[in-house]
């Protein structure tokens, strides 16, 4: 995976201007801190994934960015300005916070028309957007109460894109989409970012974010726990190694100064790279059944740790 060095990623990230800047954002409700000193940036030409378990503070942070929720402290700017200072925000920032938050009695076409008229766009934009998100004209005439969640997400994406914005802020846009829909969304956002757009999207699913994001912001219990390019976060993962003789392998690795930890049912994980682990195992005469670079394993562990507190299944991690 090291074809793209983290160094290069860093450099390119620095070159691209920050389109969304969140600084020391906090939000507390009587005795409960939903967002705690959150800072991050999202850059042009990149998809920034906002990852965290349910209730971690993703949606609250995004609502603060677009001015729907007042922050207790801290600032958030989009395109260098507070959201409320954008003169016609729909034409600069496309926002989808909750696809179900629409008047159930309006048709899909009507919802797009309202957005089109609010921004004073050409009427043809409505049909363009319906085509873009593959909602047929029959579907567009149906009332939103009869839409599946996937159709609502498509309509929400259409509403976000209708003003041809250069920044997209999407909260859990893949929810309710079928696998083909998720693939479609991924391609759409990739194309959008490659054309110079900025995407900030949230998800509570690690895999979903992993396949689309360039940069990751991981949030748990209202705090940022990791922040960086995906390459950086994945590179820090080390090695996963498996053997029938776990005890012997553990001893050998520890003797070599590594500190292996148990991982995923009988395997071990260390921060060292696979070639070193292989050499150690060979020298110790321990037969390996699996040896691989632990792409994302560190991230996954961190994420499981975050979720385990809130998961009803108990100690999943």
């Amino acid at each position: 995976m090291s074809a793209l060095s983290p160094m290069w990623q860093e450099a390119s990230q620095r070159q691209a201007p920050a389109m969304i800047t969140v600084e020391s954002l906090s939000k507390s409700y009587r005795g409960f801190t939903a967002v705690d000193d959150v800072s991050f940036t999202a850059h042009a030409g990149r998809v920034t994934g906002f990852l965290g378990p349910n209730g971690a503070g993703k949606s609250t942070s995004m609502r603060i960015v677009v001015g729907l929720t007042p922050a207790s402290s801290g600032t958030a700017t989009v395109l260098g300005r507070r959201f409320a200072d954008l003169p016609d925000p729909g034409r600069e920032v496309g926002v989808l916070l909750d696809a179900s938050a629409q008047h159930a009695g309006r048709t899909g076409r009507e919802i797009l028309t309202i957005a089109q008229q609010t921004m004073g766009l050409a009427r043809s934009r409505v049909d363009d957007m319906l085509d873009l998100v593959s909602l047929s004209s029959t579907e567009a005439e149906r009332r939103v109460r009869n839409y599946s969640l996937g159709m609502r997400q498509r309509l929400g994406i259409a509403t976000a894109l209708i003003g041809d914005p250069e920044v997209l802020i999407l909260d859990e846009p893949a929810n309710g989409l079928d696998p083909a829909g998720i693939r479609w969304m991924r391609d759409l956002l990739r194309g959008y970012a490659d054309a110079g757009g900025t995407v900030l999207l949230s998800s509570h699913l690690l895999h979903e974010i992993e396949v689309i994001a360039d940069d990751l912001v991981v949030i748990g219990h209202g705090r940022i726990v990791a922040h960086g390019t995906k390459a950086e976060l994945l590179a820090a993962a080390g090695t996963v190694v498996r053997s029938a003789d776990v005890a012997g392998l553990t001893t050998a690795l520890e003797a070599a100064g590594l500190s292996p930890t148990a991982y995923d049912g009988g395997a071990l994980r260390t921060d060292a790279d696979p070639s070193l682990v292989g050499t150690i195992a060979l020298a110790a005469g321990v037969a390996l059944t699996e040896l691989r670079s632990a792409d994302g394993a560190g991230l996954e562990e961190m994420f499981l740790e975050l979720t385990s507190d809130t998961q009803r299944e108990g100690a999943a991690a």
Binding site: G45, L161, D194
Partner: peptide, 25 residues
């Protein structure tokens, strides 16, 4: 400005998509 390219293949999870040059600014 939203040009939707259909990418030929799904980029493997271990690479950062298909952008290898500087992104269009």
């Amino acid at each position: 400005a939203v040009t939707v390219e259909t990418l030929g293949t799904v980029p493997p999870a271990t690479t950062t998509g298909t952008t290898t040059g500087t992104p269009t600014v």
